[in-house]
Amino acid sequence: MKLKTISKVLATAALAGGMSVAQAEDPINIGFVYVGPTGDAGWTYAHDEARKYVEEQLGDKVKTTYVESVPEGADGERVIRQLASKGNDLIFTTSFGYMNPTLKVAKKFPKVAFEHASGYKRADNMGTYFTRAYQGRYLTGLIAGKMTESNVLGYVASFPIPEVIRGINAFTKGAKEVNPDVQVKVVWASTWYDPAKEREAAETLILQGADVLTQHTDSAAVIQAAEAKGKY
């Protein structure tokens, strides 16, 4: 995202948060709520790199803070409320399970702007954002369908929510387009970030004949498990 675009987003967020023009000249305080650790090498890491980029590009126009490894649910609501109470003008809640807690807190803090990743509920001061990740998953499906020799592909999934199911469907569609005989086997890890569970899921898929694996979880454990077994 270019600097001009970032500035426009922050200016819009400032207005959505009910700040006056004079107030908008002060640094915009931005809070981030992360579902995993910043060192997960995946989802949270990418979000935090973006946070750092905003600071680098906008300098003293913004001041950011973050809380990592926040469980979805009651703990999420508590942390979101704390960030709103501490004077943040804009808060990013970066996991699907923060959707209802974010909406609840947004109603209590109408002058704060909230942006929620991957959800579908909105309010006057709460928006949503997400990438078209399913497009990339479709392309990896095309590749996996051509590469497999066993005709079994493995997919380590987190939770059965819209964004994850979209990804599985897109990957499967791509694979079957080039290889109608291919099977996509899914193991639900029931976590976003738990390297042990993710590795166990990957090893289970390999035992079931999968020779190409993909994932919708946040650690590198699936990649490491595949490499250890000589799989893609």
Rank of each mutant, 00 (worst) to 15 (best):
G76M: 07
T102K: 07
L15K: 11
K176H: 10
Q215G: 08
A144D: 03
L10R: 05
A106C: 06
Q23Y: 04
Q82A: 13
L10M: 13
D194S: 09
G59C: 07
Q183A: 10
W43Y: 13
A196C: 00
Y53E: 12
K176V: 07
E55A: 11
K197Q: 13
E200I: 07
Y193T: 09
V9E: 01
T12C: 06
P71R: 03
T172S: 14
I28P: 06
V187L: 03
F32P: 06
Q215H: 09
F130H: 12
K86P: 00
T148Q: 12
A228L: 13
T148F: 05
D48E: 15
A50I: 14
L142D: 03
M147S: 12
E25Y: 14
A220S: 15
D40H: 00
Y66E: 03
E163I: 13
M147N: 06
G174Q: 02
A84D: 12
D194V: 11
H116G: 00
T204P: 03
G154Y: 13
E149D: 08
T94Y: 00
V182H: 04
A221K: 08
I206E: 01
A113V: 02
S219P: 06
V33I: 15
Y120P: 06
A189Y: 11
A157H: 01
I223A: 12
T128L: 14
K185L: 15
